[in-house]
């Protein structure tokens, strides 16, 4: 069975690497991790992932929600937002993009896994 390919968008590289490790331990394939929204757009086009794990606070001009908005304009791809803060304003903005989930950090890996699995179990 083909592994689900994940793109991680996270500006803290260590956290990104750790998340990559966790995802891989859970049986997913992480195609890359990037620190900015701009890079996320490029890598999505280039690597064609199945899911994007998107942090909201990113380096660069765009935040995760802006980047996700641009991405879904050219590719219908499931997006899981991860953020340290459950601010209402961010949540409301993110919900307009109809994401798979809006998770708070530290991310509970099992929860993350069940969200990803649910996308592809249908």
């Amino acid at each position: 069975m083909k592994k689900i390919i994940i793109l991680i968008v996270e500006d803290e590289v260590i956290i990104a690497q750790c998340l990559k490790m966790d995802m891989e331990l859970m049986g997913f394939d992480v195609c890359d991790y990037v620190a900015s929204g701009e890079e996320a757009i490029i890598k999505t086009k280039e690597l064609n992932p199945d899911v994007i794990l998107m942090d909201i606070n990113l380096s660069g001009e765009m935040d995760g929600i802006d980047a996700a908005k641009e991405i879904i304009n050219f590719k219908k791809i499931p997006i899981i937002f991860c953020t340290g803060y459950g601010q209402r304003e961010l949540y409301d903005r993110a919900q307009k993009l109809n994401p798979v989930a809006f998770l708070r950090k530290p991310v509970i890996l099992n929860e993350m896994k069940s969200h990803i699995d649910s996308i592809f179990s249908m």
């Binding site: 803290e12 260590i14 956290i15 690497q17 750790c18 998340l19 490790m21 966790d22 950090k105 530290p106």
Partner: peptide
């Protein structure tokens, strides 16, 4: 702290 936590985990 999360970075430290991630490093320890790895």
């Amino acid at each position: 702290m999360q970075v430290i936590s991630s490093m320890l985990k790895m």
